[in-house]
Design a protein around this nucleic acid. Structure first.
Lengths: 193, 193
DNA sequence: ATTAATATATGCTTGACGCATACATAACCC
DNA sequence: GGGTTATGTATGCGTCAAGCATATATTAAT
């Protein structure tokens, strides 16, 4: 849009390839990976589409209101309400009343929902693990560091954080870089006040 | 499914983090990247959904029949036909008759379609470039090598190749690793005969 | 030549999604 | 503290993309 994002001109050669080619391959890889685990996770949910992400988010943060879920899933409000309706009818989540805001609904997984959620997280991890199995330990470590750096730079507010992490396994991600980036940007805001 | 995919037990520590955490971050990163450029590319197409990928594929391979497009997009046949109908009505593609198979349709971009296709490829590249701009040249090169290795291992047949590369800029990706992996697997098949 | 497989087209139905609207509660503020 | 605005949720309604089943044409296979 209005921001100049190219640090290197894309034709520049870095090692054996151009920046352009690296960018293109990263895009293809991101698509391949997300295609793989998006399909797999959705097959574990009661329906295709955003249901799997909804269950994973509620597993991570029980009591989440509809509006927060809506932002994380990128749906319209009515779309989210109808999604919740179907998931309640399917017996995987329940609407409770919120503690501190009587307008809000506190969404919770049922026992069955927790099982679905566990299956969703497991199949996602399995798909990613399977894709990364060709890397040697050194490459895996390098990829981990790079992913951490990139993730930190991608997230600027809470909505984006919930969105990016909507299928994450919070238990697997100790010292989550996304949470750290959010804390840092909050700290920066306080200083600027 | 039936294949054991874990090379390392996920609790194993590699450098500063567990394999589990690395896998989780890679998943989140793949989601963040693909979310970003999927939305951006779809906004450049005449409609949201698979239209952007269809235009990119036809830009790369003019004359492609509906059935190949169908497999790359992962739609039903009728869904693909209707998508083509809408894109034809929108003036971005045309149905021609195929040279060697009188059942098949040869799909081609119109002038307007080529412009949309260029915009789609450009915005994708821009989004990825923007996301990677925090990396230094050394990290970028490392990521390039890792992405190349991972891409090669992910693609096993022509349908998967078209699917993974459905938004790629073929001009940017000289010596495409996906094509190379396909050639190798074909060569391996011939040897096994 | 029959039969099976492939490529495309279409009538029909379903269902997820968004818009507009309505209502309840909370936050603000003068 | 009453009035205004903002926030969170629910629902009637229309739209439209997607899949199923089926039909037709062409090619391949036996």
């Amino acid at each position: 849009m209005h921001i100049k994002c190219y640090l290197y001109a894309s034709r520049i050669q870095i090692g054996a390839m151009t920046v352009q080619k690296i960018e293109n391959m990263v895009g293809a890889l991101a698509l391949a990976l997300s295609d793989s685990f998006m399909l797999a996770t959705q097959e574990q949910a009661p329906e295709l589409g955003p249901a799997a992400a909804a269950l994973a988010l509620l597993g991570h943060e029980p009591g989440m209101p509809i509006e927060r879920l809506r932002r994380a899933l990128g749906l319209s409000h009515s779309g989210t309400v109808r999604l919740i309706d179907r998931l309640v009818a399917g017996g995987v989540i329940e609407r409770h009343s919120s503690e501190h805001d009587r307008r809000a609904v506190a969404l919770h997984l049922t026992k069955s929902g927790e099982e679905k959620c566990a299956a969703i997280l497991a199949v996602r991890q399995q798909r990613i693990s399977c894709a990364l199995k060709v890397l040697d330990p050194h490459e895996l470590e390098a990829l981990g560091k790079i992913a951490e750096k990139l993730l930190k730079s991608q997230v600027h507010n809470l909505d984006e954080a919930y969105c990016v992490c909507r299928l994450c396994d919070a238990a697997a991600c100790v010292n989550c870089p996304v949470a750290a980036a959010l804390d840092e940007s909050k700290a920066a805001q306080k200083i600027s006040l």
